[in-house]
Design a binder for these strands. Structure first.
Lengths: 353, 353
DNA sequence: TTGTAGGCGTTATCAG
DNA sequence: CTGATAACGCCTACAA
């Protein structure tokens, strides 16, 4: 490992000059040509600063802690992590990972994270919810992902739930559907009333009436094929907006049992939490995708901009500090979700026949 | 932050004595009572060593790097990460996460990991496969997870694929099934021939013949309902061993279309990659669960035992070093998978009727 | 058995 | 504008 001292010797400059130049803080202290010369020789020598030494001195580590507690029981974690990792990597940060699934020692894990010097924390939930951050994080830079604290005191990023319901329903309306069922969730989730609100809004905006008989709410983990079947037979909807992929599966099963084909006889759009639905169901379902990647990405960006205090416009990809164009993180409290068309929505024509 | 110096002062001892005692290396250098006294005052003061300073000195960070490239496209990552994290946490290590999904700069990310001083690396794949580790890792402590290198030079942990096929098929045989179909995968995967081998072995051991007409291999990402339907109708199997959950879904759909009920009219066991299957399909499917958690856990344990050179029996949960009973990682090249019974396998009686 | 001092690689302070 | 030099907190010869 080449050190700053070696660079100084080779470049014929002092350690101070080297440190200053390499951090682009030469303004007025080191003359321009020398600074440039130093940077060149540093590069030539393949110099990279030693993060440990730097941290010891600055008590900043260019490290963020990713804290999550449901990583193993949901399939969404991967994208969240990838998004955060991408942003961190772009900005020259490393991610320390802490998972506390089903363990009581979250506080201990956070303490470790602090000792290792994490500059800030991403506190991620796998289901959009109200969640206050643990007390041990209250004095640290923290961004909540896929959750909001009770008073919105902590910066947070969540999906635009209302838009989900609105976009899906609108799409079904546009395809010519007349009787659009809402297959919701009876569990106490933030998302449920919001998505339903979007559903209602879309119907209203289209001049259609809201029919309570077309709505049903079933629990996430109980058998509910029977109740959905009943709605299916008594109400004969021609389209379905499903709260999530578990419900999408029920509709596929109902259709299969009745010899109906999705995308021809009935239309369906579901929120997709889970790749199996969009990748294996036939015909492929049209889905609304939760913005897990985006939440991770913008969460990390926001956190880092908070850490760096917004005025520090530096990025450190290889350990060397360089200038970057911008390090602004917008504050997208709500992220709009993508609607992916795949063929489970009937064309206008077939609905009218 | 309280430092080693302060502990020394309060305890009325020298810095050396404190460092030695706190690292349990006093043997003969510090007298026992003093060492004990020092440890007590350290605890009382809430002293935790500063990892940066320690690392700067020792060039060891008690940090391992977790490298993965498919984290966002598969749902298995969570358990893998959780397992690794659990082991790391138990042994006082932190996990630095690097995800390289679809990016070409794996080498760069690994370089970062190295600069940050990771003591070793977990190189994880999401599908069991042959995978040589990148050259930049060849001189580092590395453990392959869910993959093996071409010559088994790198320590690795993979599922016992043959046992998967054997256990599932045996279970079906025991329940009275006579015509057990094998719904395999036509993609080039390590697991395919091995699981099939287990299927064949189980049949042979039970004195049953292997019927090629009952076997089918379909691609992972093409529509294949039609071909499976054909097998369903022409061969009339009474049981199915499915290579993965996508195939399980096809069998459920075939059954629904024909008014057959799984667990009564036909039996089914599938490998479950994906929670939606076991949580929402009705009746609940009996599954073989891939040992993602275990691979992560034992992978990390093995790595750390490699790092610590096996003789160093220390653990450092809060940054303080203490004695631990053992730090052995077995070498379970193959991990046997759990079979979870959930009711998609018919009872003997019904098969016999 | 204990204490002192030097050094790990940086950054920051303060004279020149 | 430049360059010594002192920290940062820890570990470890080596001297006492």
């Amino acid at each position: 490992m080449t050190t700053i001292k070696e660079v100084a010797e080779k470049a014929g400059a002092s350690v101070t000059a080297v440190s200053l130049s390499l951090n682009h803080r030469e303004n007025g202290h080191v003359n321009k040509e020398l600074a440039e010369h130093i940077r060149k020789t540093a590069k030539k020598l393949g110099y990279h600063p030693n993060p440990m030494a730097r941290s010891l001195r600055t008590s900043r580590t260019r490290t963020i802690g990713f804290i999550s507690e449901e990583i193993a029981t949901t399939p969404y974690a991967g994208e969240l992590i990838l998004g955060a990792q991408d942003a961190a990597s772009e900005l020259g940060y490393m991610m320390l990972m802490v998972v506390t699934d089903g363990k009581a020692d979250e506080a201990k894990e956070i303490a470790s994270l602090k000792r290792y010097g994490a500059d800030g924390f991403l506190y991620a939930k796998m289901h959009n919810r109200i969640s206050n951050i643990p007390r041990s994080l209250s004095n640290e830079q923290t961004v909540l992902i896929n959750a909001r604290d009770a008073k919105d005191h902590v910066p947070n990023i969540t999906p635009d739930e209302v838009a989900i319901g609105y976009d899906a329903t609108t799409k079904l309306i546009d395809s010519g559907a007349k009787r659009i069922a809402y297959i919701g969730c009876s569990d106490d989730l933030i998302a449920e009333p919001l998505r339903r609100k979007g559903y209602e809004q879309a119907l209203t905006d289209a001049g259609m009436s809201v029919n309570p008989n077309l709505e049903i709410r079933v629990p996430n983990d109980g058998p509910c094929l029977e109740r959905i079947s009943e709605l299916f037979d008594t109400q004969q909807p021609d389209a379905f907006f499903c709260f999530n992929d578990a419900r999408t599966w029920y509709i596929y099963q109902c259709a299969a049992q009745r010899g109906l084909q999705i995308g021809r006889d009935i239309s369906l759009i579901g929120v997709d939490n889970n790749r199996i639905v969009s990748e294996t169901f036939e015909p492929r379902p049209t889905t609304i995708e939760l913005p897990h990647y985006e939440m991770g990405y913008w969460g990390a960006r926001k956190l880092i901009s908070l850490i760096e205090g917004r005025e520090l416009k530096t990025i450190d990809t290889t350990g060397m500090v360089a200038e970057i164009p911008e390090l602004d993180a917008p504050n997208p409290v709500f992220i709009r979700c993508a609607l992916i068309e795949r063929g489970s929505v009937a064309s206008k024509a077939s609905h009218r026949e």
